[in-house]
Design a protein around this nucleic acid. Structure first.
Length: 884
DNA sequence: TAATGGTAGGGGAGGAAAACGGTCGCCTAT
DNA sequence: TATTGATAGGCGACCGTATTCCTCCCCTAC
């Protein structure tokens, strides 16, 4: 019997004292498969002290084999292999125990690879990668432990080259709990309803809501109790048998909540493809991790956060990540609006209200699923799995370390090297101290020429750090430590570190990275001739994944928790980078026609002496060739873009009018980097105003027009014509309350929100939205929840917005243009003044509109003007209206 | 077999430190 | 010529205010 499937999950069970590997997958025609593989055991290596067999006799019944072997040690260039002892064990779960026993009794000089997850030990040895396709041969077996259509005992397994994705089944989940104003407690508050959304359809349905009340409505089922509802939920999962379970924030809310309710109702938690393994929920400092055997949990909330915050955010960029905000931005679809506290009211309300709640709940699961599918959010992660070998689930929930280590273990072992253990907390501390003392210097940012420029060509190095790894053969395995190898051919980096040259031995990381870069080039070529949009999209995800993985290696060398942390290597790489960018600047400027006006890490911006776009492009080509021939075999430079106009404000902050040739026609596009328009901690009004001003300047160079525009915005603001939404500022909560030392607006508001309603207050990692209201306190204490402001009719501090949100970014722009900022400041003052005069003229003063007086400096409010004419703080008293 | 990539750099807010300015008392020269 | 009083001016201490610097924090570029 032979079958070809895509590998979705892998785990092991312990059967009769030996491990059995299970491979879960799906075939092209949608059949579920589970392959079982026996006779594979976990092992690790040690450099022993004394008689290891004797020392390990306590574990004799666990130990399968102890044998002598020879391997290269991982850190520092090794001219020959070292004698090691390989210990093979019968139970993966007890490896840590034996390892720690050896460590604690100091029975070994060093231990290697005793902390590789068993499934990954297996996958590395069999060269198996998550989400790739495999052909297994073997015989059918009958089992009730696994819920798969085909269960096969594997005799042979081989990879099948295929870039397709199996027809996966998706289930999106959202639950509602009626717990009033308090935080729902899974130990006592029952689930009111569960909405399910399916792809493909399930029994002719797109979605279904299970309700713990005996209601009757379309695409919903009512139950007499929560327990009955949950039993049906488990049944549906089994029947539909999804490969991917998704939803919005399911990892931190819905899934752990469901798990606890199942426990409370004494329902079996084995909702995965193994009939005995319950779904697992572990709490790891603030966050939950969930796993369901044979299925993949993909939390759309977490994915969106990752792609927008860590990636280059090609798809979208948001200030907040509520499902409503995301759906509106991405799908242009609004979420049904229902306040948290209203859920209980509706749930206890009329039939009609319950139906409304059902639709609200349904919409959430539908939206999450649409986001996942319509935006192909999984594609990139699937490709990362295929490249690194991790299972898709682990790509989704772990960081770069796991990805890199999984590539390393494979390549190290292939070349007869052993991989070090992860550092202990003591080692981590030592490394931190080392880094503190020696320092890890980063990249070089060239001093910018601030101001407005024309005719700029922007060039950058292709994959700079990966190229440096290759060019200088940088790797822990090629690093020369100490003496004794002076006769070997080596390369010295500007930081002084020495690496044996490729002729002696190619480093492992250089080899991996070289492969990744070449592969990416190949994919990019294939992309340009892709047969259809579907194929192109997958190739694009793949090339993006290759880039991400190739760029991750550098970070690991300087990361104290990494297996391959070597500070000298991290410093070697950055030192090469700094040197290269400086050399490049010199090479370019050796031609008097060109001037490098800015550069950051791996890029340069060059001013050229022509107004003609084609000519600038030619200049770019010329520079490209010159640099490439000078730095041949090290790095490659390429034109990234041409800027017709470019406004540089400071390091890492600029805006430019990029021109691109599309079908023979030049297209213009405004690019902004680092400035407030791309930052999420400024209000929309601020971003928009700045964006428009910059656009006017870049496209028309007309600062008078920009001024007039600003004046209008300020007047609108003073008159209160700006919708509150545009004044909302968001900032994220990065740590727990007690860790904050200083006073900050969003943190002060956080304190207030927690007091008002512990149930709905945001948590660590969330973004908090606020506006600044009028009042005498510190600005930080005047941050208020926009909803609260609306509900209580509080007044916005327009002065704050003018002086601290709108004007400063604009001042910086005009300053770079050498337009005096007092002129701009004048506009601000003028507006405040004209507005008062305007009101007076309209006779609004006497109509009671102005009923109070406020200090212009500290915002203290007076009913009558103090006799002194000055505020207690010394500032001037001006008119103040609560109606404005 | 618990998990967590890096540095460079701008900029806002708050608070501490240092600088400034005014007043007062004291002293001295005229 | 010696003494006395008024007065201007210098100086340091003191205190409150305006600046500057530093730290913390967030977010971005690469």
């Amino acid at each position: 019997m032979e079958i070809i499937f895509q590998l979705l999950d892998c785990d092991y069970i312990q059967l009769n004292g030996s491990p059995v590997i299970r491979l879960f997958g799906k075939t092209k025609d949608g059949k579920t498969v589970c392959g079982f593989l026996k006779n594979y055991f976990p092992y690790f290596y040690v450099i022993p002290k004394g008689d290891l067999k004797e020392n390990l006799k306590n574990f004799s019944q666990l130990i399968v084999k102890i044998e002598e072997t020879e391997k290269f040690l991982p850190i520092g260039f090794q001219s020959k292999k070292t004698k090691l002892t390989k210990i093979t064990v019968s139970d993966p779960s007890r490896v840590p125990e034996i390892r720690d026993w050896i460590k604690d009794r100091n029975l070994a000089e060093e231990i290697f690879e005793a902390d590789i997850l068993f499934k990954y030990r297996f996958m590395a040895d069999f060269n198996i990668f998550g989400m790739r396709w495999y052909k297994i041969s073997g015989h059918n077996i009958n089992t009730t432990t696994v819920r798969a259509e085909k269960n096969i005992e594997v005799e042979k397994i081989e990879e099948v080259s295929d870039s397709d994705i199996a027809p996966l089944k998706y289930l999106s989940i959202d639950i509602e709990v009626a717990a009033g104003e308090t935080l729902p407690d899974p130990k006592k508050d029952p689930i009111a309803m569960i909405s399910l959304s399916f792809s493909p359809q399930f029994e002719g349905r797109e979605s279904l809501v299970l309700v713990a009340k005996p209601i009757k409505m379309k695409d919903a089922i009512g139950f007499r109790s929560e327990k009955e509802m949950l039993e049906e939920f488990v049944k549906i999962i089994e029947k539909f048998d999804p490969d991917v379970i998704t939803g919005y924030n399911i990892n931190n809310f819905d899934l752990p909540y469901i798990a606890e309710r199942l426990r409370q109702c004494k329902i079996n938690l084995a909702i995965g493809r193994c009939a005995y393994k319950p779904m697992a929920t572990r709490k790891i400092t603030q966050k939950f991790r969930n796993s369901i055997t044979g299925r993949i949990i993909a939390d759309v909330y977490e994915i969106i956060k990752e792609v927008t915050e860590k990636g280059q955010a090609k798809i979208f960029k948001l200030k907040r990540y509520g499902l409503g905000d995301v759906a509106k931005e991405v799908l242009n679809e609004s979420k049904l609006d229902l306040m948290r506290s209203e859920i209980t009211k509706y749930w206890d309300g009329t039939e009609e209200q319950i139906q409304k709640l059902v639709e609200y709940c349904r919409k959430d699961s539908v939206l999450a699923l649409r986001l996942l599918l319509e935006k192909s959010l999984l594609d990139k992660f699937i490709e990362i799995a295929r490249i690194t070998g991790l299972l898709l689930q682990d790509v989704l929930e772990s960081g770069e370390t796991a990805r890199i280590e999984n590539i390393l273990i494979r390549e190290f072992n292939k070349q007869d090297y052993v991989l070090p253990l992860k550092p202990t907390s003591k080692e981590i501390l030592l490394r931190k101290e080392e880094r503190e003392a020696k320092g890890l210097k980063g990249a070089l940012v060239l001093e910018p020429e601030i101001g407005l420029h024309k005719n700029i060509v922007y060039l950058d190095f292709k994959a700079m750090y990966p190229s440096i790894f290759i060019a200088f053969n940088i790797c822990p395995t090629t690093l020369l430590i100490g003496n004794g190898n002076e006769n070997l051919e080596f390369i010295t980096t500007p930081s002084g570190a020495k690496f044996v040259s490729k002729n002696v031995r190619e480093g492992i990381i250089p080899k991996i990275v070289r492969h990744l870069i070449n592969e990416r080039d190949r994919i990019k070529k294939a992309m340009s001739i892709a047969a259809n949009e579907y194929e192109r999209k997958i190739l694009d995800a793949k090339q993006d994944a290759l880039k991400i993985v190739a760029n991750s290696f550098y970070g690991q060398t300087g990361y104290v928790r990494s297996r391959l942390y070597v500070l000298d290597i991290a410093n070697a790489i950055t030192s090469c980078g700094r040197s290269l960018i400086q050399q490049t600047k010199k090479i370019v400027e050796s031609d008097p026609r060109f001037k490098v006006i800015y550069g950051d890490t791996d890029s340069i911006m060059v001013k050229t002496p022509s107004d003609d776009l084609d000519k600038i492009f030619e200049f770019g080509k010329e520079i490209e060739e010159k640099v490439n021939s000078a730095l041949k075999g090290i790095v490659q430079m390429k034109i990234d873009s041409i800027f017709k106009t470019l406004l540089i404000l400071s390091k890492k902050r600029y805006a430019g009018l990029k021109v691109e040739k599309l079908n023979g026609q030049y297209q213009e596009k405004v690019i902004m980097r680092g400035i407030e328009t791309v930052r999420r901690d400024w209000c929309d009004l601020s971003s928009e105003t700045l964006m428009n001003v910059i656009e006017i300047i870049l496209k028309e160079g007309n600062s008078k027009k920009a001024f007039d525009y600003v004046r209008n915005v300020l007047q609108d603001l003073e008159k209160g014509n700006i919708p509150l939404e545009k004044l909302v500022i968001t900032k994220s909560i990065s740590k727990s309350l007690k860790e904050y030392k200083g006073v900050q607006p969003h943190i002060e508001l956080w304190k207030k929100l927690r007091k008002r309603s512990p149930a709905t207050a945001p948590g660590i990692g969330d973004r908090i939205a606020f506006v600044i209201i009028k009042g005498p306190q510190l600005m930080s204490e005047r941050a208020e929840d926009p909803e609260y402001v609306k509900a209580h009719g509080l007044k916005i501090d327009s002065r704050y917005y003018i002086e601290s949100q709108i004007l400063p970014p604009l001042e910086r722009v005009f300053e770079a243009l050498k337009i005096s900022k007092s002129e701009l400041l004048g506009i601000g003052k003028q507006v405040v003044l004209t507005d008062i005069v305007e009101k007076a003229r309209k006779n609004e003063l006497s109509s009671g509109l102005i009923d109070k007086f406020i200090c212009s400096k500290c915002n203290q409010i007076y009913r009558r003007v103090p006799l002194s004419g000055k505020c207690e703080c010394g500032g001037n008293i001006i008119f103040y209206s609560t109606i404005a």
